[in-house]
Amino acid sequence: MKDFISKKQSLTLTKMLLVTLTLTLMLTITLMLPSPTSAASKEYEIYKKIKTGMTATEVSKLIYGKSYKKHLEKFLGVTTFNSEPTYADVRDGRHVYEFGFFESERKIDDSSIFNISIGLFSKKNGNTLYVGYKNYQPENTSETRLYKGKKPTLGMSIKQLDNIAYGKKLGTYYDHTYENMTFLKFLDNKGKNIHPDKKTRVSYLLKSYDKKTNYHVYLEYNYKKKEYYVTMIF
């Protein structure tokens, strides 16, 4: 009987540990990738699946499925998308492109945006393009009003920023960017990697209580503290 109770207790403790680890992982993911409140969409789900280091072909399969080959072409020796890039540069043995996908209209100002943008880079003298960064812009961006007498300041955490936001709090972000170009080895003239770390950024649109002052606030994720902090305000 004692052995039975011991095994039962052990199983219960194991289940509790698994639940705790799962909740911790979910919280970490939530902090790294704040979900737009309006983003239960196909585009957002695709954005989450795009990983840095993916090739152009792999991204095309993810976005277009079985018809992915129709959206690719060979250009200057590399396989890339056959749509018009938003940026293109070939120099010093590297190919650099940016492409946008899922064009839509941002409702807050009727501007044309791409829900998803990716930066594609070749390695030095390489002929394969890899994702170095990705960006997501929801069309239903919030413009959040702040409490009276409150304003964003540099170094403020996302929690502190949320606490001074009126009504529905920060709401839906303006854009989200994840970058990891460490593997591409962009070196300076001393041989140092100029992109040594991965980076995650998110930005929000805020208004003062009297609606006279607009703020575009950028926050960067601190991987050690597992929290976003304000790094720029415009």
Rank of each mutant, 00 (worst) to 15 (best):
Y130I: 02
S10P: 02
P138H: 04
P34K: 06
T55E: 00
S112D: 13
I116R: 03
T28N: 07
Y228N: 02
Y47F: 14
F114E: 04
T200C: 12
R94G: 09
A39D: 09
N115E: 14
T144F: 03
T52P: 01
D92R: 14
K2F: 06
S208T: 09
I233G: 00
M156H: 09
P138L: 05
Q160W: 00
T231E: 02
E105T: 15
Y223W: 04
D210I: 05
L170C: 07
F75V: 04
G65C: 02
A88T: 13
T28W: 12
A39K: 00
Y68F: 14
L72D: 08
N115T: 05
N222E: 11
R201D: 08
R94I: 01
S6A: 13
Y221W: 10
T80D: 11
S83M: 08
A165D: 10
D197I: 10
K168A: 09
I29L: 11
K198G: 10
K48C: 00
M232Q: 07
D110V: 02
D210C: 06
L154G: 02
Y133S: 02
T79L: 08
K225F: 07
F114M: 01
L72C: 04
K134A: 01
G171T: 14
A39R: 05
K15R: 15
Y221F: 14
M26V: 14
S83T: 15
S117A: 12
T177I: 12
N214V: 08
Y136V: 00
T28I: 15
Y215H: 08
K74E: 15
G119M: 01
T12L: 07
G132P: 05
Y228W: 09
I5D: 10
L219Y: 05
N180C: 06
Q160R: 10
F75T: 03
P152G: 04
T55I: 07
F114D: 15
T86G: 10
A39L: 06
K123Y: 03
M1G: 11
R91C: 03
Y47C: 03
E98K: 15
L187Q: 12
P152M: 04
E45A: 13
S112F: 07
S67M: 02
I194H: 00
L62S: 00
Y147A: 11
T52S: 04
N127R: 09
K211T: 11
V19N: 13
